[in-house]
């Protein structure tokens, strides 16, 4: 059973970080849906709800998403819903249910870097920056590769552009965790393919993305790129699927993702 000894609701980020740094078991509280299932013994739980971080807004050519915005906000907010073919909204809309998404925060979802995360996969094919209180701004990909350090995720910043994108998540049943999820995007003939729930954390299929960007998008090249993605990434086995099946799915979903992006471009 998870326990909390104390609780803080700081008014300033500095204060929040101070408390966080003070003790090893002091922890930032997100929506608590996942935290609740853990056996963590938390010293001071730090609630960021007084810091006005629940925004999704335009900020100098970026979509800025505050750490305390909920998945449901991301799903329904006009700005996030309309950008990039709606993949931000799509990537979260099948996570459990509305009530769950009204509680779970974007900040906690990204900071936790869960392997099964649908959102991370979608964010990876966009020009996403993570802003940490202490660590500053960095591309999402760098953040994901960074070792865990105690910090506060303040906001995400996604560069606005004409980027086309598609997201798909393969689930055995509608509200299950994904067996595999795939996001594909394209801007100025530069393609990005990301694959998550492998079941490891989402990564970009670099070689496949490059191959696709350099070619002419013929049917054969699409197939080839999808195969490269399946070959270059590593897959694992868990209760939802074997590595071999995930690899096969990867090829299919990547191919479909590319085709969907091409289709929305031609529309």
């Amino acid at each position: 059973m998870f326990t909390v000894l104390d609780m803080a609701q700081p008014d300033k980020l500095e204060e929040a970080f101070e408390i966080l740094a003070k003790r090893k078991n002091n922890t930032i509280l997100g929506g608590c849906a996942f935290l609740k299932m853990s056996k963590k013994r938390i010293g001071t739980g730090i609630d960021l709800s007084r810091l006005n971080l629940d925004y999704i807004r335009e900020d100098n050519g970026f979509i800025a998403i505050g750490a305390m915005a909920t998945l449901r906000d991301l799903e329904t907010n006009a700005l996030s819903r309309d950008a990039f073919g709606g993949i931000l909204s799509q990537s979260v809309r099948n996570i459990i249910g509305v009530q769950f998404r009204n509680g779970v925060t974007v900040g906690a979802s990204v900071y936790s870097r869960y392997g099964f995360s649908d959102l991370l996969t979608a964010l990876l094919v966009l020009d996403t920056e993570v802003e940490l209180y202490n660590g500053g701004r960095m591309p999402l990909q760098d953040f994901l590769q960074k070792p865990y350090e105690k910090d506060i995720l303040v906001q995400l910043r996604i560069e606005k552009s004409q980027r086309s994108a598609a997201f798909s998540s393969f689930r055995k049943s509608a509200s299950d965790f994904a067996v595999l999820n795939v996001a594909v995007s394209s801007l100025d003939h530069q393609w990005t393919i990301a694959v998550g729930a492998r079941p490891g954390r989402a990564v970009i299929a670099e070689t496949a993305s490059r191959a696709l960007s350099q070619g002419h998008l013929s049917a054969e090249e699409l197939e080839a790129a999808a195969k490269i993605a399946a070959d270059e990434l590593s897959f694992g086995t868990n209760t939802r699927g074997t590595a071999g099946y995930r690899k096969a799915l990867c090829q299919v979903l990547v191919k479909r993702g590319i085709m969907e992006v091409l289709q929305c471009k031609s529309n």
Partner: peptide, 16 residues
């Protein structure tokens, strides 16, 4: 038993 929560043991939801 590995299927001891509704996260791991999936009964049909409305969409299924």
């Amino acid at each position: 038993m590995e299927t001891n929560t509704f996260m791991q043991y999936k009964i049909p939801c409305r969409q299924d």
